[in-house]
Structures are given as C-alpha cells and as structure tokens.
C-alpha cells in the first residue's frame, strides 16, 4: 500500500520532467532506503526475540516474583539463587541521582544558551557540550575511580568512595549533553511572539524564561530528560567501575551498590552458555529492556506532542 502511494507520487511528479532511466534510478534509491528503514525494525525484533528466548526459561526455575522482588544473588553457588531487587534499586537510585544533578544543570544551561548567551558564545559552547557526549564511558569511569571516588569519600566522610553517589555524578555528566541540546532546541522553537509579548508586558528576562518559555517548551524538555534517563539507566562501564559492587539492597545513595547493566557485563563472559546464570542475566536484560523501552516510548510521545503544538 505504501509503495503504491510512493509510486503514484513519483509518477505524477516525474513524468513530464524526467527521462525513464532517471525514474528507474529514483525507484532503486527508494527501495534501498526502504530496506534500510525496515532493517532496523527487523534487527530490533530479532534482538527482542533473542532476549526473550534466552531469558524467559529462567522463570521455570525461579518464579518471576522472587526474581524481581528478592535480593539474594548467588549465581554460581550450588544451588544458585537469583534475586535482582537490589540491582533494580541500585540502578534506579543511581539514575535518580544523575537526574537530580543533570536536570537543573541541563535546563539551566539550555536556557542560558537559548536566551541569554550572545550568539558567538552560544556557537562556542554548544559544540563543547556535545563533545562531552563523545567521551568514552570507560574514560569517565577511570577518572571517577581515580579522582572523584577519593574526593567523595573525603567530603562525605564515607567508608568507601565507590558508591552510588559517585556513579550518579558521573552519569549526570553523561546525560547532560542530551538534556542540554534537546532542551535548547525546544526553547529555541518557542515562537518569538511569546517572548516578545512577555517582555512587552513588563516581565523581566528571568520571569520570561521561568514563567513563559520553559512552560511553553515543556514537552521538549521532558523528552530530553527522558532520553537522558534512558542513557543513564543503560550505562554500564562507568557504573561498573565506580558504584562499589555491593549486592545488598542499598539504603542510602552513598552506599556501595550494583546496577543491572554492570552485573550483566561482569558475569556474562563467565556464565556457562545456556546455563541458569546465563538465562538469569538475559532475564535482567529483559527487565532493563522493558524499562528503557517504556522510557523511550514516553519520550517519543511527549516529543510528538511538542512537534504538533508548534507545527
């Protein structure tokens, strides 16, 4: 049905103007692009199938409830015990910390870039912020292990600098670029008239940003936060290096903790192929997939709303 519609448009547009070989080439390009587009869908579907085929069998051994809501994780003991509650809580705590730090900083930076910074400064700062997202996570993890962890331990007088807070701070840096650049786009997309009307009514610059522009750009900002969150919850290497690797349920953010991603990364290499530990790790992957999937879905819906508002 789709291709028919495409063909119709292409015929209508090209018949009087283009020669036959040109039209054929056009069609070929369309087909190639369609294949590329469908490929991503197919690959995603295959990954999902693989994830579920490898992961679901674990629930024949451990019931889903105790898998999700108990916290004993002894995958190589005899008999093995699989409970990932502490990992889920660890992931959520680290991600929440990252967002608490990254949201105010990110929206502030976006508002500065969109509204306050003179254009030359904006052109200088934006690429630098985007460069931040290019730092490999293992490098960030290394910096965190060597510099941030001892500092955190000293400042908060903790037993160990390898903890959720250290991981959260590093992850905040990882999701900042996403939040800043999408929020900035959203703020810039707010029609000029809003700003002009607000200023004409006598509102100060700060009132304009805080009361008019940010609310108007809210869907875009929310989406940027969601995408940043997706990045934070899926991040592995940094978390693995600095979160402390304790398997108990953390009671506070400054406790050492483990995240789902880090567990998978550490154990998958050692797991007997197709064994229980292997299945359990894939089941963690399913949980992670469902979480990031729903985050991205919500972000998409919200972004779509923004698009429609100013279309």
């Amino acid at each position: 049905m789709h291709s028919q519609a495409i063909e119709l448009t292409s015929m209508r547009e090209s018949k009087p103007l283009r020669s036959r070989p040109k039209r054929d080439r056009e069609r070929l390009v369309r087909i190639v692009l369609a294949i590329a587009g469908w490929m991503t869908v197919v690959i995603l579907a295959l990954i999902m199938i693989m994830l579920f085929v490898e992961g679901l069998p674990i629930f024949a051994v451990t019931n889903p409830f105790s898998f999700l809501f108990t916290s004993q994780w002894f995958p190589v003991s005899d008999p093995p015990v699989f409970g990932i509650l502490s990992l889920i809580i660890g992931s959520l705590m680290i991600t929440a910390t990252a967002l608490v730090i990254a949201i105010p900083l990110g929206i502030g930076a976006a508002a500065f870039l969109a509204e306050i910074a003179p254009p030359p400064l904006r052109e200088a700062i934006k690429p630098v912020i985007e460069l931040l997202s290019g730092i490999p996570s293992i490098v960030l993890g290394f910096v965190g292990f060597l510099l941030l962890a001892p500092a955190i331990q000293r400042i908060f007088n903790l037993d160990s600098g390898l903890n959720g807070l250290t991981a959260g701070i590093l992850l905040a840096f990882m999701c900042l670029p996403t939040i800043v650049s999408i929020s900035e786009d959203a703020l810039s997309a707010v029609p000029r008239e809003y700003k002009e009307a607000s200023l004409a009514l006598g509102a100060t610059r700060w009132q304009t940003i805080y009361r008019v522009l940010i609310p108007a750009a809210r869907p875009g900002i929310v989406a940027s936060v969601m995408l940043g969150m997706g990045r934070a919850i899926g991040e592995t290497m940094t978390v693995l290096m600095v979160s402390g690797g304790r398997l108990a349920i953390p009671s506070f953010i400054t406790d050492p903790m483990s995240a789902m991603t880090a567990r998978i990364a550490i154990e998958i290499n050692n797991a007997v192929f197709g064994g229980l530990q292997y299945q359990a790790l894939f089941a963690i992957g399913i949980v992670l997939f469902l979480i990031t999937f729903s985050i991205n879905l919500v972000a998409d819906l919200v972004l779509e709303k923004q698009r429609r508002r100013y279309a």
């Binding site: 160990s160 693995l240 402390g244 304790r246 398997l247 108990a248 050492p256 550490i266």
Partner: peptide, 8 residues
Amino acid sequence: GLMVQFLP
C-alpha cells in the same frame, strides 16, 4: 557477606 563489595 551482604556488605561485601565486589570489584571487577
């Protein structure tokens, strides 16, 4: 123990 930290 539960409080043990596992490092990679």
